[in-house]
Structures are given as C-alpha cells and as structure tokens.
Design a protein around this nucleic acid. Structure first.
Lengths: 234, 234
DNA sequence: GCGACGAAAAGTGCATACAGATTCATCGCG
DNA sequence: CGCGATGAATCTGTATGCACTTTTCGTCGC
C-alpha cells in the first residue's frame, strides 16, 4: 500500500479553483449532485459511493463526505452508518407531495402578505408585477422567469415569517429543476401574468383569503404544467 | 512522509464508541450542539471554531466539520467560506416565526387528514385520543406527553403528503426544546385533551375547515404556553 | 495619538493515511 | 447441491498534515 500511486502524480493540491464558478468545492458538488438526482441522471435507490464521486469530481473523499452529509440533511440522499449514501426517491408521489406543499406554502405566504406587507412592500410588488407586462408582450421567456422568481420571493418575504420563508425557499429550490421549462408552454406567460394580477389585487385590497386562494391555484396550475416534464424524467 | 509522527503516539484511534449512546460520532455531535444552541448554552452570533469543538468533544476536526455542515443545512448555524460557523439567531422573532409556521403546518395536516385519512387511520386516531383520557385524570404528564407526540404524528401522517410530513416533523424537532415543560402548566392537560377532541371530531366528520382551524388554534395556544420558557432562556 | 501596513497567529479547506465495518466470492462440509 | 464459514476486497469513519485565507496585533509614519 505504498507505491500504489503510480500514474497519479502526487496531485500537488493544484488550485484549480479559478476554473470553477462560485463557492467552495463542496457547495459546487452539492449543487451538481442535487441536480443529477433531481433531473434523473442518477436514479432513486442508486448508491453513491464516496470513492467514485471523489474521482468523478477529481477531489478527495473529504469534501465528498461533506457534500453527502449536506445532501442527506436536504433529504436528497439517505444515509446510515457504514453504508453508502442512497439516492432518495424524489420521483412520483414525493414529487407530487412537494408541489402540493408548495401550493400550500404559497397560499400561506400570500395570505400573510395580504395582512402584513408594509405600504412599501405592496407598492414594490405592484411595480414588479406591472413591469412584467412588457415581458409578456415581448414573449421574453428567460426574462419573465427571472421576474417570476423575484415576484414570488417578494411574496415569501412579505409574509414576515422567517421560518416559512426558509421552508418555501428550500422547497422551491428542490422543485426548480422540474419547473425550468414551464414558460415554454404556449400561452403560459400571459396566463401567469393574469394569475399574478389576481394575487396582487387581493394583496393590495388586504383580502387575505382571496390572496391565499389565488396563490394556491396559481401554483397548483404550475404544478400541472410541470408534471409533463417531471414524468418524462422517470 | 514516513516517520513524521514523533511525539504524537499513533493515537491508537481508541474505540471509545462503547461509552457513548447511539449513532455515529457526528450524529451525536449534531444533537449535542443543536441542543446547546437551542437551549441557549451557546448564544446566537457566537463563533464555533472547529478546533475548539474538536478538543471539546475529543475528536478530530473531520467529524466536527461534518457536524457543522449538517447544522448549517438545518439552519442552526450560518456558514461562509473560510469563516467560522456562527450560531444563527434562533431566539426572539425567529422562534416566534417557527411557532407560527408550526400552527400553519398543523392546520394543513388536520385539514388534509380530514379529507384523506382512511377509515383505519380515523379509527386509530380516535382510539389513541380516547385512550388518553385516563392519563388526563391521572395527571400523568410524562405519559401524556408521549401520547401527545403520537397523536400529532398521526395527524401528520394522515395528511398523506410526505413533504409536508417532513417539514412539520423537522419544525417540531427544532421546537422540541422549547415545549418540553408545557404540560407542567396547571390545567394544560385537560385543556389539551379538549382541543384534541375538537380536532378528532372534525376529522371524523370529514370537516376539513373545522379540523384545520381547531388544529391551528391548538398549536397557537401551545405556542403561548411555551413562550414563557422560551423567553426565560434568552 | 491614531490610522495604515505587514508579519505572525489562528483558522478553514482539502488531501491522504489508516482503522474498522461491510460485502462478496470461495471453499469446505453436510 | 446447497449452505454456512472465512478471509480478501471494498468502502466508510476518523486522524493528521499541508496549503491558503482571515484575523490579530505590533510597529511605524504621520
């Protein structure tokens, strides 16, 4: 076990950091692996052994282990002592439960936002929303997607509840890969704008119940739209 | 790179595992540190440097790093590259937001349970509930607390939504340290039983709205009861 | 006296080494 | 021919070392 490393030059711990985009190695791996899981590049039940991952990403096992631990905490992989990490089943029923939970959470956020948003927040939400009409007419999918994210983030913040914010943000992050293509569906942009309009109107009126319901349906619809892509990946 | 280890006797990597209770070293540390944070033994904003923790727990930095990463994913500590982990502010507003979120989540679970529980699940819930009357009369706080956990878990499961289950379970876990003493408050046992009764009745009747509201208030009340202990720890 | 600078100290990020656990193929025996 | 024992191969858990980054603190110029 001494002279084994024949062709691997002593590795030199080269700073290849510059090549890579952002964050620490571990963060990048977390994102990369999460993406692979959620896009179906790695299938549920598959084992993720540290050594293969380490060589795949060209790092040592230490950062791999940290990444796996974080993925475990995120619920994307299951871990038990002295066992390989195993990809959790994110497909099918669980995915559905996440979309449903997302709708509930958005409903809560909109309801609380209607009750709690400051005058400034309401104004900002309305401006953000009105500004997006231009994008709808232009059919600018990419830009509208960015606006959409911003719009929803405002809703989440407006609820003035940090823990809810965290839950909804995490859930959205886990669903992100399944929603990417949603605005490609014909007519979805205009429809989305209309639904946003209902939410905004209800919030401005401080009508909590209406806001909650509008947000719930909005997300439920997105869920249906995304289901196509989701099942395609199974 | 051969005879380097001079004064450090080879450390022997003693299996002190037997002394410790359950799970891997890392899991134990996660629990221990989480408890310290949440009970206020470590204050928000305080830095957790790996070396001190390592020596405190008598392990090397590797497991400490993994524990910190998991705590980071749990939201108990903040982490950024090349910085020490910092205890997040769990007190005050954030705690309040967790209790509020808990009430919302319980409301959702009860509402969905009313709609979705199977006949067996409804029966089991009712039995569990009725069985607890005995404990109320006996004033058996400990046992009632156990029953209470079981009761709520049934509600969470009854919603038939895995992601909601996960969120509510995690939130409950993080709140646990703040609720421990709730049943010590005089009369809280009987009150709790009554509130459970409302929830059960509504679920049996499949009255989703009533079940949701009953569960929401039930938790909101517990939140008030716990606030005493929470603020005491700040 | 005070702020800018710089070097030492302290700390994080990752690689590697090695102990212990698990898995799996092989072999001996009924 | 199957089945359990056994040991090698493989993999996880943890310790330790080195590179790089941040922090601290003393010193010097103003």
């Amino acid at each position: 076990m001494q002279v084994v490393r024949v062709k691997n030059r002593p590795v030199k711990q080269v700073r290849r950091r510059e090549v890579i985009r952002t964050g620490t190695t571990v963060e990048q791996m977390v994102r990369a692996i999460a993406d692979m899981i959620v896009t179906g590049a790695i299938l549920p039940g598959e084992k993720l052994d540290e050594i293969s991952l380490a060589s795949r990403f060209e790092v040592s096992r230490t950062p791999v282990r940290e990444a796996l631990r974080e993925l475990g905490a995120m619920g994307l992989v299951g871990r038990e002592p002295n066992r390989s990490a195993v990809v959790t089943n994110v497909s099918g029923t669980y995915l559905h439960s996440m979309f449903e939970a997302m709708a509930e959470l958005e409903g809560i956020c909109a309801r609380l936002s209607a009750e709690r948003m400051t005058v400034d927040e309401r104004r900002a939400l309305e401006l953000e929303h009105r500004g997006s009409m231009r994008l709808v007419h232009a059919g600018a999918e990419e830009e509208y997607a960015a606006h959409n994210t911003e719009f929803h983030t405002r809703l989440y913040r407006g609820a003035h509840n940090d823990h809810v914010f965290e839950m909804v943000t995490q859930t959205r992050a886990r669903l992100a890969p399944f929603r990417r293509a949603q605005f490609r569906l014909p007519g979805r942009l205009a429809k989305s704008y209309e639904e946003h309009d209902q939410i905004v109107t209800a919030i401005i009126r401080a009508d909590a119940v209406a806001a909650g319901q509008a947000a719930y349906s909005h997300v439920a619809i997105v869920s249906d739209a995304s289901a196509v892509f989701a099942t395609a990946g199974e």
